[in-house]
């Protein structure tokens, strides 16, 4: 298998539980050395697909290849250099963190035991390795889960909601750690999360699943760029500015936000449009105190695509 080949290849993957279709006809590839954010509302099939990819559940139809090996037929070879967290990292609570890793190292083999100390160091648990896991916080268990994932020196890390239970400072460290797996180690990371702003900062690519179907797959930049296009203005005469801007053809909407601030939606989102807006206002004698481009956040795009509301969608 060459480096150019995708590390994950999904082709028409469908998983049913009785009459319920959890995952429906999903096909896409994940390239090597990238971080893919796997997003979807609760119950959309995110974890089900991850379980299928890791050989924990069988697909109803379609094929999955991981590292060039078919799942589940060649799961042993496929999973040799794959690490993962599914839903929640689980351990033997009565053993210490280090002992837990020793248990898994015994199964992974191939130098895994020598990777225990570096793995604990990397996730920031070197000082807590001798504590029993039942004394760990949720965030510590998440980090220990990542350490366990590293024991097999994985080419691919599949992490399902790995940032659950982390505090804000832990979140920043965690983000940096995930990026280092990609940028420094050259690993591929497939990460599912409901924390969209976190995924936006971590991921190179995004795939969105909704009601079991893949509704979007592309780079983060492409996804966000296809969203709302606008600029934010602060002017000294909002009323006059609105009437001037409504006369410009490439402006589709002007919204007054109070205190001289306007939100302007444009047909196109380039420098020329911003310059034209500024020029039109200045020529008309409207003072421009501030002009800033507004881009859609991943969360806004996510809600647009899945048609969800803030109440039932991930934060």
């Amino acid at each position: 298998m060459s480096e150019a080949d995708p590390i994950i290849r999904l082709d028409g993957v469908t998983k049913r539980f009785g009459s319920k279709v959890a995952v429906s006809d999903i096909s896409f590839d994940v390239g090597r050395g990238r971080c893919l954010g796997w997003l979807g509302p609760n119950g959309s099939g995110k974890t089900t697909l991850i379980r299928c990819m890791l050989g924990l559940a069988r697909v109803t139809s379609g094929t999955i290849q991981v590292r060039g090996h078919a799942i589940p037929a060649e799961a042993g070879s496929a999973l040799e250099r794959v690490g993962g967290i599914v839903e929640e990292p689980r351990f033997y609570p009565y053993l210490t963190g280090r002992r837990n890793l020793e248990v898994w190292a015994g199964l992974v083999g191939d130098g895994a035991r020598e990777r225990i100390a570096p793995a604990l160091e990397r996730v920031g648990l070197a000082a807590d390795g001798e504590r029993r896991v039942k004394q760990y916080s949720m965030g510590m268990r998440q980090r220990l889960g990542v350490a366990r994932s590293l024991l097999g020196d994985p080419e691919l890390l599949i992490l399902d909601e790995p940032s659950n239970g982390l505090d804000p400072s832990g979140m920043a460290d965690f983000r940096a750690m995930i990026r280092s797996f990609v940028e420094e180690d050259g690993r591929t990371v497939f990460i599912s999360s409901h924390l969209l702003d976190e995924v936006e900062k971590i991921a190179d690519d995004i795939a969105i699943v909704h009601e079991g179907r893949l509704v979007l797959h592309g780079t983060v930049d492409e996804l966000v760029a296809a969203g709302r296009r606008g600029i934010r203005l602060r002017v000294d005469d909002a009323e006059r500015a609105v009437s001037i801007l409504q006369g410009l053809r490439f402006i589709t909407r002007v919204e007054r936000r109070g205190d001289g601030e306007l939100g302007v939606t444009l047909e196109r989102h380039d420098d020329a449009a911003a310059i034209a807006v500024t020029r039109a206002l200045v020529v008309a004698g409207v003072g421009v105190a501030e002009l800033a481009r507004e881009r859609a956040t991943l969360e806004e795009r996510f809600l647009q695509i899945t048609g969800g509301s803030a109440a039932d969608e991930p934060r």
Binding site: L56, S77, A78, V82, R90, Y92
Partner: peptide
């Protein structure tokens, strides 16, 4: 019951 089985299976050991 504890949820560790999936991580044992995930090692690739049959």
């Amino acid at each position: 019951a504890q949820g560790t089985m999936r991580y044992l299976v995930l090692t690739g050991v049959g």
